[in-house]
Design a protein around this nucleic acid. Sequence first.
DNA 1: AAAAATAATGAACAGTGTTCAGCGGACAAA
DNA 2: TTTGTCCGCTGAACACTGTTCATTATTTTT
Lengths: 205, 205
Amino acid sequence: MTIANRKQREKEEMRSLILDAARTIFLEKGYEQASIRAIAEKIEYSPGTIYLYFKDKDEIFHALHEEGFSRMLKKMQPLQHVQDPFERLKAMGAVYLDFAQNNRDFYDLMFILQAPIKHEIDMEDWKMGHQTLDYLKNILRECQEQGRFRGRDINYLSFTIWSMVHGMSALYCRDRCKAYHDVNLEPKELMENGYKIFISALEKF
Amino acid sequence: MTIANRKQREKEEMRSLILDAARTIFLEKGYEQASIRAIAEKIEYSPGTIYLYFKDKDEIFHALHEEGFSRMLKKMQPLQHVQDPFERLKAMGAVYLDFAQNNRDFYDLMFILQAPIKHEIDMEDWKMGHQTLDYLKNILRECQEQGRFRGRDINYLSFTIWSMVHGMSALYCRDRCKAYHDVNLEPKELMENGYKIFISALEKF
DNA sequence: AAAAATAATGAACAGTGTTCAGCGGACAAA
DNA sequence: TTTGTCCGCTGAACACTGTTCATTATTTTT
């Protein structure tokens, strides 16, 4: 059975070889500008080979999509050590914004890009997305047990909060922060202070 | 001088003929999937002709970009009749969200698409964008004169509010509202109730 | 009516994602 | 060891993309 094992291993090695190349090129050029030929050239194989390991460009995209969520979830791990749920909520938002700023292209891939969402959302791909969202909802529930956000629907509340941090992140990723260039405000400043205002609002809520 | 006039008129007619076709195709297929050949075919001219009226695909995009802002500004006109600035602020957010939902692809074009923003933002293209943003800032100033949002920086405040409504709109446009499909919540519901929560937060702020 | 200027064409170029007949080396059976 | 069957891989080919430009057609000026 060792030969079958080796075959299996080689197949997986090839997949991750392709994915490594794809990641750098996707994140360098974006989904549309990244070409299969460029990925093939990077790993010194012919374009056709890639189609032996991935059905199409979308499938490569989805693999990276998943990697993005996995990276984000990892960054969220330390939050479990924050006792107070409201503090945890605030920290989660900060981690989220940080992730978007430091992994701009992964963020784009995960939350903005349309391209291959033909394959329907809330399938396998979004398992981790749901996981993150559920984590947020649970924090909110804990906050409610402490008396915060009394009487508010958890789903709507989570959507509001997600929209807030996503809004900033999306404006950042797609360079709309430049709308504040005329008043000499940098994206980083905007997001930091914008988030502070949001937090104050939540505190009084 | 009548012949020069006619030439001028014909040139403009041709431009708007192209733009009409481009708009339907752009909004149907999105920026990347819309092809010059498809636009040419729709108006029954050869592909080359389009390049006699527009430098490239980006220039067509920018013309539509401007049209989007012009449409949005028009929808904002009635707001001037709302006396109370805070009421006007609330109404502005509602108009914004409404625009995003009912002109999804224009909204995408204006605030999400990356494609041809190579041409730099805050040039001519963003004149109307800045106009809208300034309008928001002025409302906020009026609110402050009434004692609301005391001591807050207008720029950061406007960014927070913009991010909020953009966040919802962007999640809507890029189908991330589907993350709530498992709890049977429709995008419209989410946005309506999410916005209500945001408004309550602003009221207590 | 001839000449000049303008407008429109469509073939061509370099690029894209994707497919597939065929090649060559590794494996199994003789 | 030789034979025969796989199977990973190739790269040419297909149908598409944005863009350019020599050529042709039309209109205006002389």
